[in-house]
Design a protein around this nucleic acid. Structure first.
Lengths: 223, 223
DNA sequence: TCAAAAGTGTTAGATTTACACCCATGA
DNA sequence: TCATGGGTGTAAATCTAACACTTTTGA
């Protein structure tokens, strides 16, 4: 074996799981179930095993929490302050994931005792978890401007108002409705269906869907 | 102690050191001096000790190689494939740094047997070091559009042509000279001095400098 | 009947892009 | 004297931002 003279360190992953509900960007957090720090608000995380990649560990952790696979996930970065975890030296790699709130069963939420917290109203949290969330949000804000990732947070069929509220929630500022719709119309991969949503208004609104095949033809997204 | 049931892993840092010379973006790489992989093209790296943050380890590693402190550095991310290092399981956190080629002594270059490699002509490299460099470059390309980090790669005094060549090298495409200079003129924190550089042309060109104090007043940068 | 959300175009201003010639100097 | 890099302005096209009213329908 090589590098034997060097010190090994615990490596963990933490999942920042974003969801969108009631026109608000939310993040899934719970109360820490182990010492030290038991009871504090915390991200859901796990340790990286010797025989799994860091990426796989993040996917596995997300699966444990949500039962979902093939979820959109991106690395936020490594957090490596010496005293970031009061229990031991742990270097953690944060990932953010985008899921549709409706796909996450309330049953699992109760089982893991996690809840959707409004991103604008984060409590103080265990270790550096709050900074992780803020960094993840910054990255997501950049990402969502140039790649069609917002659809991960919506149901397959969505109204234009929902889509607009999503962008407003992520970026934290209002968007002009007419300008927004004009830009959407230019994107052929956001397809209008003939279905009408009657839940959100009396009049009803057309439902749209993201067509990934068309998007892949020229990947021309800008919002 | 907590978390005792979990496995510890070697954590390393790798430094992607960018420089700018002969109108080309370059990266400092050398031949690996240890087994396994001895002799392969490699980034300069080091292991993270138990009592230093990952960030500090990166700064320390950079200092070992260049003798420089207070260098502009940003994390690229964690690389965690199980078999990325043939010697052992190692999770590595990559950082990129921007330095002025002139500040790096040829003596140290010889001592560490590293050289400036054109970013467009990267050889195949040890482990995932090539991917690290490519990711670092992508991040740098984004960064340099909205923050005045390019000056880190230039001497304190520079000509507008040098600055333009730098942006061309980073983004890999030519820029119109008149449009470029128009944009520069709008930025008050890029100050014209009365000094003339005679090295690069017979006529001579005015030297400019970045004024960080003025920049901090309203941080309005866009290129 | 009225409150609430859906839907729809135009215009002024700002920004971006394309483009060509003269200048100063050392070799 | 000429080759080399330094320096300069304008106009067309594109993009962005601001703005208000009509429609539909369930309560």
């Amino acid at each position: 074996m090589y590098y034997i003279e060097h010190q090994k360190i615990l490596v963990s992953v933490d999942c920042i799981i974003f969801g969108f509900e009631d026109s608000k960007l939310k993040v899934l957090i719970g109360h820490r179930k182990m010492d030290p720090g038991r009871g504090e608000w915390s991200l859901y995380g796990g340790f990286v095993g010797n025989d799994e990649s860091v990426e796989d560990a993040a996917q596995r952790t997300l699966f444990q929490l949500t039962g979902m696979r093939n979820v959109y996930m991106r690395q936020v970065g490594a957090f490596g302050a010496v005293d970031r975890d009061p229990g031991a030296r742990v270097v953690s790699v944060a990932y953010y994931a985008l899921i549709n709130v409706k796909d996450y069963s309330e049953e699992l939420m109760r089982e893991h005792e996690v809840e959707w917290m409004n991103i604008e109203e984060l409590p103080s949290m265990f270790s550096d978890h709050r900074e992780m969330i803020l960094r993840a949000r910054q990255m997501m804000q950049l990402q969502i401007k140039t790649e069609p990732v917002g659809f991960q947070l919506l149901p397959r069929l969505f109204t234009l108002t929902q889509l607009q509220r999503l962008y407003e929630a992520v970026n934290g500022e209002d968007i002009d409705k007419r300008n927004f719709r004009k830009r959407i119309k230019d994107m052929e991969f956001i397809e209008k269906t003939q279905l009408i949503d009657k839940k959100s208004s009396k009049r009803g609104a057309y439902l749209y869907q993201f067509n990934n095949k068309i998007y892949n033809e020229d990947k021309n997204f800008k919002l």
